[in-house]
Design a protein around this nucleic acid. Structure first.
Length: 586
RNA sequence: GCGCUCGUAGCUCAGCUGGAUAGAGCGCUGCCCUCCGAAGGCAGAGGUCAGAGGUUCGAAUCCUCUCGAGCGCGCCA
């Protein structure tokens, strides 16, 4: 979309100077604040190539552009060339496209049919999804949606932590306490039931050394395929998955592949055999490891425990082979917190030593932790526990929805019943999700209910409000007026209207950046910027009815309605790609 | 000790792959609802971009070092 606006300019400058168009196009930048113009061209590099002084070249180019008749006005400011596009030429270039389908503003072909695997959320079973799981879940979800919009074929994978020594311990506790299915069925919350069982048996293990042996024994029975052990494990898994599904339903997240470590419990063998055959495996303190010093890493990667059991690096390798065989991915993302970067660095390195063709396409997409404000100590604290109880994601979402419901009821009492509930959920969840996506993912997220749930400022509800406001104007547009596509884009002559279109045109670069650097905040920021531009445009009409969308001149009103529709459609699509809903009123 | 993430306004953060006078939200000050949604807008005050070197015509941005914060570093995942 941006190219549509700059193509004539690029052609004009590049033919005049006799340089490649791409050389010119990559120079475009936003002009400095306060200076007039829509596009700035710093002339240093071009001047060097042509061996003239930058200010001289800028002045020359200004003349060339101004006499070219390409719907743009240029002014030199020292070594910079500032371009102001005509509002009508912007509208004529973009509005017809947007009218046909606003989603063009958020589509790209950079993915070109390649496959990307996105591994995200990946909770451990038999535990509640804690608040911090929101990060992997919603960053991963946004990445999956954005890669899709950028032309990639996306495989969404939920790799459950459903295998390992913890389950041996859990089953040992289950047997020791003589529990049965009826006890689990009777529990008000089955995951809480399992979680508490785990806490009890872990505590007991510290006092009673026989527990450890029992746990290891049940672990082994699981690995060996013992029917009783596997039946219990299966029950635990089913119960946990159901609880996760409920959260994903609230968040609007889906997966293509519900995998898990258990699927690769027997897959360690072939990997170990291959490592051995290639001479990469060696024994170290009783364990089997791969030395990574040839790749500049001091510590080796652990492959097998001294008791012969597999480790998670081994299972990750096996799972990765499997994914590559099944999906032929060109890129594979692991949306897991930054604390595990060493683990990923290690097994990526092993994949490289094994000569895997995909080794360089693996990416650990890490994120920072979630901190919560503590009123008593006036500090930011990790959200691990509150009074020893894990802070549950579902509780946070429920409180957010409740707070949103109160605001909706207050601001818009005529919205009632099922619609109010739907909107409260969209707004409450949207507030929490956007709080997580708006800043760079590698930083820590600071969460405060009062901040995330405020409905002014840079928040999810602000974006949703902006969308609802545009919908409201559409609803009020008189049926007697000419409706688009009869609208004439040439009637959009205001700078504020041009600004909206330019903000829309900046979304594709933002989307492409998301799919390149795995950074959803790039889109979040661009959508935010669109919303503020829209708000500024609309509010200007408060005191001047000629500036309103619903202005006295029907032809002008029609053109503006086309812009309202475009902006609403784009905003709605932007919200969708971030994993937020966009209610039509709120 | 090694590695990772980070340090920008009172607070929370943007700053696209190096460009002009470093931006936004909150808070604060002053305006704007007989005005398409005030969940909004306009204006203002507020900064030695942690510090020191280096590369460059040009550095918040790239390189090195120092200081400070958080996290990780062998049989858990």
């Amino acid at each position: 979309m941006q190219e549509l606006l700059t193509a004539p300019l690029t052609a004009c400058i590049s033919t005049h100077l006799g340089v490649a168009p791409a050389l010119v196009a990559k120079l475009y930048a936003p002009p400095a604040k306060g200076l007039p113009g829509d596009i700035a061209v710093p002339c240093f590099q071009l001047a060097k190539a042509k061996n003239v002084a930058p200010p001289l070249l800028a002045a020359q180019l200004a003349d060339v552009v101004n006499s070219a008749g390409i719907g743009a006005h240029a002014a030199a400011a020292g070594p910079f060339l500032n371009i102001t596009l005509d509002a009508t030429s912007v509208a004529l270039a973009l509005l017809p496209l947007l009218a046909a389908d606003p989603r063009v503003a958020l589509r790209s072909r950079v993915g070109a049919g390649r496959v990307v695997c996105v591994d995200f959320s990946s909770p451990n079973i038999a535990k509640h999804m804690a608040f911090h799981h929101i990060r992997s879940t919603m960053i991963g979800n946004a990445l999956a949606l954005c890669y899709d919009a950028a032309g990639w074929k996306v495989v969404r994978i939920n790799f459950l932590g459903d295998w390992g020594t913890a389950f041996g311990r859990l089953i040992a506790g289950w047997k020791r306490e003589g529990l049965g299915m009826a006890d689990l069925e009777a529990a008000p919350n089955k995951v809480t039931f399992l979680n508490q069982l785990y806490v009890r048996i872990s505590r007991l293990e510290k006092e009673d050394p026989t527990v450890e042996g029992e746990a290891r024994q049940w672990s082994r029975r699981c690995e060996e395929g013992d029917a009783e052990a596997l039946a219990l494990w299966e029950t635990i898994r089913t119960v946990s998955v159901a609880a996760c599904q409920e959260i994903y339903r609230v968040l609007g997240v889906t997966f293509d592949d519900w995998s898990g470590e258990s699927r690769y419990r027997d897959a360690a063998g072939p990997i170990v055999a291959e490592l051995k055959q290639k001479g990469l495996l060696k024994e170290d303190q009783g364990a089997q490891v791969v030395d990574l010093s040839s790749l500049g890493m001091k510590k080796p990667c652990l492959i097998l425990r001294s008791d012969g059991g597999s480790l998670y690096a081994t299972r990750d390798l096996a799972a990765c082979d499997d994914r590559h065989a099944r999906y032929h991915f060109a890129r594979s993302l692991y949306e897991v917190d930054l604390g595990q970067s060493l683990h990923f660095k290690e097994w990526f390195a092993v994949a490289k030593l094994l000569g895997r063709p995909y080794a360089d396409s693996l990416r650990h997409v890490g994120h920072g932790i979630v901190l919560m404000w503590n009123d008593e100590t006036s500090t930011w604290e990790k959200t691990a526990t509150r009074k020893g109880i894990p802070m549950m994601l579902m509780d946070i979402l429920a409180e957010a929805i409740e707070r949103a419901r109160a605001v909706v009821a207050d601001k818009n009492p005529e919205i009632v019943g099922e619609e109010r509930e739907r909107i409260a959920a969209a707004v409450g969840v949207g507030a929490v999700v956007f709080n997580d996506l708006k800043n760079s993912r590698t930083g820590d997220v600071k969460f405060k209910f009062e901040e995330a749930l405020r409905f002014d400022g840079e928040t999810g509800p602000y974006l949703q409000f902006s969308h609802a406001r545009l919908c409201s104007i559409e609803r009020k547009f008189p049926a007697t007026h000419p409706h688009p596509p009869a609208a004439d884009p040439g009637l959009l002559t205001l700078d504020s209207e041009k600004s909206v279109l330019l903000a829309i045109a900046r979304l594709v670069p933002a989307l492409e950046r998301v799919a390149e650097s795995d950074e959803p905040s790039a889109l979040a920021q661009a959508v935010l910027s669109l919303a503020t531009t829209v708000a500024s445009w609309l509010t200007a009409g408060n005191h001047d009815e000629d500036l309103r969308v619903l202005c006295p001149d029907p032809a002008k009103a029609s053109a503006r309605l086309a812009l309202v529709r475009a902006a609403r459609g784009v905003l709605g699509e932007g919200l969708r790609l971030l994993g937020l809903q966009a209610p039509e009123r709120m």
